[in-house]
Structures are given as structure tokens and as C-alpha cells.
Computed example of a mutant assay.
Amino acid sequence: MIVDKNIILKRIGEKPILIDVFKSQNTHKQPIILFCHGYKGFKDWGAWNIMAEEFAKAGFCFIKFNFSHNGGTVENPIDFPDLDAFGNNNYSKELQDLNDVIEWTVEKFKDNPNVDINNLNLIGHSRGGGVVTIKAEEDSRVSKVVSLAGVADFGNRFPKGQALDQWKKEGFFYVVNGRTKQKMPHFYQYYEDFKENEERLTIRRAASQLKKPHLIIHGDNDTSVSINEAYALHQWNPKSQLNIVEGADHVFNTRHPWNNKALSTELKSVINLTTTFIKQKPAKAN
């Protein structure tokens, strides 16, 4: 296995993106998986590195990255020293980040016979599930998409009523990070960007119009994102594949830090379901 950690994708006028690549040394034409972390997440969270290794062993070129405004930095990609960046994050920036990582991936591996740039697949966890669903619908380079404990609606996650008015008046509100105990800001631009781009950022629209294979995986013990959001995604795209993992919480019974060498049974199920889904050839039309 070849592992390249913390590759820096520099961009003109934009914050850099940190990227990890896990791939087999000799497997020919490995399908690509791009993994997007969720809210208050990062590429090195918990068991994601072991998950990446398992996908590489299964014959994939697995790529994960930190969104540029997730609050981490090139020097410290695990904690959140750049709270100003976190406050200035929004869904449009995350879609642009993902686009730039796709372009970087295609350019990097276009002449590599061991990587198949024409078989490029997206997995998004939690909030990242919404991001990849939108991107898959609008980008012809994406072959298949997996929503992993994914959200179905960005709009209903914003404050409403008096709380929204207060946010607009003050320009920010804080959320507490349970792990680091930091007060993490959301600046009002976050909501403004959503309203300005609401049609594009409506996951229901993207899921309903999606014309490529779509896998939805959700745990029935998820207290962070309701299982009803998985059912909604499946209802909007009846051709999608829905798998419920019994007893799985939002992070499939892992945590940060994850000091075990083995994965949880529930995350193993995720890897097996995803591997089968991506490697399955599309059914031939009658």
C-alpha cells in the first residue's frame, strides 16, 4: 500500500487544502473514492485513517481531505486553531473545495495506469453527505455517490425566528465543540450564502434529479442526524439503494481518538456495502 499524507493543494487567492491518498501499489485501474468529512469534522478524525487503509486493501484509490474552512490549518489539521476560517465557511465554499480536489485528482492520476480517473466516486459523511449529493448531480465526472449518515436538508439547520434575527443583528453566534471545548463562531454570511444559492443547495432537488447510482447508508441509532433523513433521500430518489446499519450511531460506533487497530463491526459493514456498490457494474438496459 502507498500512503501519501498531508499533500498541500495550493490555490490562488484561496486557502490551501490538505489531502491524503491511500492506494494499492500494483492494482491496475483502481476506482477512486473521494471522502468528504462532516460538520466540525476533519480527515484524520477517529477511524477514518483505518477506513482509508481498508478501502485501499479492497482495491480503491482512496482520497480524503480537509475542507479549507473547517478550522484546521496546514500546521495543525486536527484541532481548530483558525476559528475565523470556521466562521467564514459555507456550503458554496465546500462545493468549490470538492471541485478543486476532483480537478487535482484527475490531473494527478491522468497518466497513472493503476488509477481509473473515469471511475470517480464520492462518499460524504453527515453534512458532507449533502455536499456530495449536490456535487454528484451537477458534475458529469462523478460515477457514483454514497451518503453516509448524511443530511437531507441544509436549510432546516439554521436558526429560525427570533434566533435568526439575533444572528443577523449581532453578525455571529457560537457553537461549543464537545471535544476541544472551543466556542466556534458562525458568521451571518453563512446564512446569506445559503439564501443566495438556495436552489443549488437544496439537497431534495439534487437527489430527485440524480441520474447516477446513489447509495444511502444510515445507522438506526443515530442521534445526530435522524434516520428519517435517509428515508427522505430514498423517497426523493426511489432508484437509490438504502441500507440501514443496525445498532449504528452517527459515526458507526467509532470515536475520536480511535486507538483500536480494528474497525467497529458497524463501520466494517459500511466498507463492505460501499465496496460492493461501487464495484457493481450498472445493469444493462433491456
Rank of each mutant, 00 (worst) to 15 (best):
S240E: 07
A232N: 08
W167K: 01
V251A: 04
L201A: 03
F194D: 02
G13R: 09
V21W: 04
K57Q: 10
E137C: 02
D44Q: 10
L215Y: 00
F55I: 08
Y39L: 06
A283P: 12
N88H: 13
N286Y: 15
V151A: 07
D249P: 05
G219T: 12
T223W: 02
A163C: 12
H256F: 14
E94I: 00
Y39F: 11
K135M: 11
P113M: 10
S126T: 03
L263P: 04
K43F: 04
S147G: 04
N237F: 01
T202W: 06
G178C: 08
E53G: 09
P185N: 07
T254G: 09
V106T: 06
K284F: 14
P282M: 09
Q182N: 15
Q182A: 11
G161E: 12
F194M: 01
A230Y: 02
Y39Q: 03
G38K: 04
M51N: 04
N118E: 05
P16I: 14
N197M: 04
F277W: 13
M1W: 12
Q30T: 12
P282D: 07
K43P: 09
P238M: 09
K239Q: 15
G41M: 05
D139M: 11
K169R: 08
N197L: 07
G130C: 08
V225R: 00
